[in-house]
Simulated scan of single mutants.
Amino acid sequence: MTTRVKICGLTRVQDVKAAVANGADALGFVFYEPSPRVVSIEQVELLARHVPAFVSVVGLFVNPSAKQVKDVLDRIPLDLLQFHGDEPADFCQQFGRRWIKAVRVQGAGQIERAFAEYHSAAGLLVDAWDPARYGGTGHSFNWDLIPLERPLPLILAGGLSSDNVSRAIEQVKPWAVDVSGGVEESKGIKDIEKISEFIKEVHRVCKTD
């Protein structure tokens, strides 16, 4: 099975073009003010013009109001919503759009409970826990906590780079991998060579399997 790739935290046209040219399946845009990778609706209106057919445009939100999500959807053709905070399932599913839920993994059984709670999601994203940040930590977590039984597609995030993504795919066998800091020069500024190497490594290990 080919593991899909999402490049998250994009802020510049050249980075969007590089991600697309190198074969990214999805591009993530952060609508969370405290994040160093935050983008405005106006920015994403421009960036989304450079995303071709069959590449998904994902909007990332952290504990938003319903109005904030609707304001974005009124102006940007998001294919998928990503909720990265403490949102309950009924909040996530009210927008008539496919969505995924992120879980910041702390201990055993947490992922299994999330599969049950967010059973109507299009996928479950598992990320590293940080008490001060909702994602984008640059740290991985104990992949042994990820169950083999997965009622939803599992998306692996947290500290991934071209150096460890092959091991991650071989061990976890995720539906997709999600990377941000691992392909950056600095927060919000992507490194085109790192994007290329990351996606090449994903494709290499998938072909090997």
Score class of each variant (00 low, 15 high):
Val72Trp: 01
Gly123Met: 00
Arg97Asp: 11
Lys187Glu: 10
Ala66Asn: 05
Val30Asp: 10
Glu87Arg: 08
Ile155Lys: 04
Ser56Asp: 13
Arg12Pro: 03
Phe95Pro: 04
Val179Thr: 05
Leu73Glu: 12
Ile76Lys: 06
Tyr118Gln: 02
Trp143Gly: 14
His50Trp: 09
Ser161Arg: 05
Pro153Cys: 03
Leu148His: 14
His203Ser: 14
Arg49Glu: 15
Lys17Asp: 06
Lys187Pro: 13
Asp79Leu: 03
Val39Trp: 13
Ala102Leu: 06
Tyr134Asn: 12
Pro77Thr: 03
Pro77Gln: 06
Val39Asp: 15
Leu73Gly: 07
Pro131Trp: 02
Leu148Thr: 14
Asp90Phe: 00
Gly159Leu: 01
Ala108Asn: 12
His50Glu: 07
Ala108Tyr: 06
Ala108His: 13
Leu80Thr: 01
Ile192Glu: 12
Lys173Gly: 08
Lys207Val: 02
Val55Asp: 04
Glu185His: 15
Ala168Tyr: 08
Arg98Tyr: 13
Leu47Tyr: 05
Cys206Ile: 02
Ser161Thr: 09
Pro174Tyr: 02
Gly59Asp: 05
Ile100Glu: 00
Ala18Met: 01
Ser161Lys: 07
Asp209Phe: 14
Tyr32Ile: 09
Phe115Asn: 01
Val62Asp: 09
Ser166Arg: 13
Ala121Gln: 12
Thr3Ser: 13
Val58Ala: 10
Ile100Phe: 07
Tyr32Arg: 00
Leu73His: 02
Leu46Asp: 12
Ala132His: 06
Arg133Ile: 08
Phe31Gln: 11
His119Glu: 14
Ala89Trp: 01
Gly182Val: 00
Asp127Lys: 06
Ala53Leu: 12
Asn63Thr: 10
Phe54Gly: 05
Gly159Asp: 11
Gly159Trp: 03
Gln43His: 04
Arg204Trp: 04
Glu193Ala: 15
Met1Ser: 11
Leu125Pro: 05
Asn22Ser: 12
Arg104Cys: 02
Arg4Cys: 04
Ala102Pro: 05
Lys194Ile: 04
Asp163Lys: 10
Leu73Arg: 03
Cys206Phe: 07
Asp71Thr: 02
Ser56Ile: 08
His139Asn: 15
Asp130Ile: 08
Ala24Thr: 08
Phe83Asp: 00
Lys190Val: 09
Val51Lys: 00
Asp163Cys: 08
Val55Ala: 06
Phe54His: 04
Ala168Asp: 05
Gln171Asp: 04
Ser180Met: 04
Asn142Asp: 15
Gln106Gly: 12
Ile7His: 00
Phe61Arg: 12
Ser65Pro: 04
Ala108Gly: 07
Trp99Arg: 02
Pro88Arg: 01
Lys190Trp: 04
Pro88Asp: 14
Val72Arg: 01
Thr137Ala: 09
Tyr134Met: 03
Arg97Trp: 10
His139Gly: 08
Leu78Trp: 10
Glu197Cys: 02
Arg37Ser: 02
Gln171Tyr: 13
Ile100Gln: 00
Gln43Cys: 10
